[in-house]
Design a protein around this nucleic acid. Sequence first.
RNA 1: GCCUUGGUGGUGGAAUGGUAGACACGAGGGACUUAAAAUCCCUUGGCCCGAAACGGCCGUGCGGGUUCGAGUCCCGCCCGAGGCACCA
Length: 911
Amino acid sequence: MDYDFRSIESKWQAWWAANKTFKVVEDPSKPKYYVLDMFPYPSGAGLHVGHPLGYIASDIYSRYKRLKGFNVLHPMGYDAFGLPAEQYAIQTGQHPEVTTDKNVARYREQLDRIGFSYDWDREVRTCDPDFYKWTQWAFLQMFSSWYDPELDKARPIEELIRKFETTGYGDVTKEQWKAASEKEKSDILMGYRIAYQGETSVNWCEGLGTVLANDEVKDGLSVRGGFPVEQKKMTQWQLRVSAYAGRLLDGLEKLDWTDSLKEMQRNWIGRSEGTEMVFNTLCDGREMPVTIFTTRADTIYGVTFMVLAPESELVPQLTAADRKAEVEEYLAYVKKKTERERIAETKTVTGVFSGSYGINPVTGEKVPIWISEYVLAGYGTGAIMAVPAHDSRDYAFARKFDLPIIPLIEGCDVSEESFDAKDGIMCNSGFLNGMTVKQAIEAAKDYVEAHGLGHRKTNYRLRDAIFSRQRYWGEPFPIYYKHGIPTPLPHDELPLRLPEISSFKPSANGEPPLARAKDWNWKGWPLEKSTMPGFAGSSAYYLRYMDPHNDQALVSRDADTYWRNVDLYIGGTEHATGHLIYSRFWNKFLFDLGYVCEDEPFRKLINQGMIQGRSSFVYRVVGTNTFVSAGLKDQYQTTEIHVDINLVRNDRLDLEGFRNWRPDFADAEFVLEDGEYICGWAVEKMSKSMYNVVNPDDICDTYGADTLRLYEMFLGPLEQSKPWDTKGIDGVARFLKKFWRLYTDREGFIVTEEKATPQELKVLHKLIGKEQEDIENFSFNTTISAFMIAVGDLASLDCHKREILEPLCVLLSPFAPHISEELWHLLGHEGSISDARFPEYVAAYTVEDSVTYPVQFNGKMRFTVDLPRSASPAEVEAAVRGMEQTAKWVGDKAIAKVVVVPGRIINIVVK
RNA sequence: GCCUUGGUGGUGGAAUGGUAGACACGAGGGACUUAAAAUCCCUUGGCCCGAAACGGCCGUGCGGGUUCGAGUCCCGCCCGAGGCACCA
């Protein structure tokens, strides 16, 4: 009876689907466990072998947790709104919905072949109106809320309106509020809403015709498409993520995420604790206070000039009449630079003198005010005090424009570079003299506050998220403009569906595609024409899985209090500063309003590494159609050419296949080494253009899904990036065959009912212990090694016993579910193996012959000693004494005393 | 520049401070076979001695240190990967 993985796998996949084996319902009698994958964007290229890595890992863990008695929620869905479908639509006129449906179907087919234990009844798609109804709903909740800094949480906007009406709030008195028009009131409230409309400098991408969020831009280019991005002032919908900066930062503490990921988020949020200080300024005889932000108030005695950001609103007011021409020239120069140029030229120092002066509030000294692009308008106050001795940017500026540099730390050398370090003893600093820098920072802050010169201030780098996109394929905003005032649609109008339009391009006058829709208005009022960005739909999808068909709420209270939040989230690290920030923000917002019961969405998070491609190369001798083998290429002048990895096995090129691959290689000649053509190789991104894409379907065809699952895990640690190299796959394929053959022969199943020997049980128990420990540490590669050893041991013991096979199937089922189900079934079981329980070492399979005792010497050195379970402490001690011989590396003086302590740790104290 | 990681055979990778290289691939040799595939067995970090050995020496990026003992811990370098980067 051969191991016919094709029929076994299709049989069980059909069986699971027909019996809804993995359907899950809330069950208060069982502990819950929520395992989530980052849902994929269904691209036209389909899945390659790298995509399922994380899905396999989460599936193994889900299946393991089920065997451990947990009620496991393990859903899957699609992040289906997005740019590629829309761009494809622009090119072909094909509706994005059509291509998306097609791609989803293909993804599903590919996923099904790998044997995942998803509850497909809970599938979600972000582009489904029943889903985006709740994305729109959440947006309206944000629109109708403000962030109350006193309670440090979001509250309904009505509470703020009441404040305006009764006492006034912020800069607005109750009289002003009462006198304000509807439009003015709307504008005031916009300054507080969590989802608000406002003019800011945005990342405008001409190539895509839309604005982008900060995390969608890298090195001045759009992440999708790689088009240049420029800064532009525009009115856009935004989410007040910055209000949550502190909580997003503090919340990281209690999360079980990797340090590197937390660090990335910390960097992105960028807390800095400093001081806001007011400098009086003089411009053409006029006086004006200017607030600056600094983290180094202690360096106040070293201020030799001030700098404004070119975009700062203060620039026109602080430009002296006789400097106007120069300043305007500089502003024009800065403005025409693209974001990319600015980044590229960070080393070059530019700036212009404004003609005005600032007065140091502590020393009373008069310093010039400059304008330079190294100061950013969007951070702090857009104005700084410059201390060239102790800030490298100020230093470079001072050197370039020949401004004075005053050192403030004893013995520091500022002749070549600034002294940025925060240590040393202060000098030239009045009341701070003699203090250490750390003391001085605090003392200076106190001084500033005590003398009314300013106050302590915490700044964050995290900006509000730009929330509108000038695109078609996204969620429409449930907003209409009544007399020009943005107004929410009533709740029963949700979902506001995407309209049909004839072309997906922006309209001729530069408006978003939705401007092309007929009747894009509500009761005659125009509807918002931009749509929401990609992260809108992915920010709360994990909540929707808990209760995916509910049309009354995003998630019912019952479902939410049962499932609470995601226990294990697996996905790529590329979402560190995008999705994972937005989701946390979104969740905290819903938490504030009492819609969800947990304030963090993802308890534990694992970043699976990327699977890279392993490209193969051939070497063509320049000007010929002759190809030399890799080992000989240095003797010729050659060009490296990517060759399809399907034509290469173990780095050997299939010569015939190569000639048939492309017409221009039809008459290729080869220079071989040892009769073979050896290809060169390199690790690169897996992509079509490098001919190194491996499709999981092909692996399932030739090796089977169980082999694919095992191999992906066997490749190395989950979190590490690694190249895919099919050549190792034979090892795990052989293992499965060996396992199968252990319990089958030519005729069929050969399991015996004999009682297992202690030796056989020991093999099993070792495996149980190892697997349990490894799975909890997500060390799946070593678990698989343990299986290989166990099966090898059992084969050499010639063990075909039910008593061993039965638990073995259960142990293997998270990794290789199909073969396990089949053997489980052959053993006479009716249902799915997923209803079995993970074998317990002590309870179900108590070992009779021996138990392993760890032995420590001096609390450090360790051995193990195997003894009968019934051994008395005296016998244990005697056995350990016998081990003195084994402890040869300790030397003669090693062992003095054996102590048996409770918990069966034997402590040997070395004298 | 800053932060986070990592550096072990021909390759992927194992090693709670305790015999480094588990497991697997590849390679070499052998068995079975008319042959191939499949399968099975042996060898496989380097060097040296030997008839043989459970023989010796060297080996985890480099240099120091702690320890009876270091791939693992500490200090200082070098290199790779990822993130942040005029954030005052």
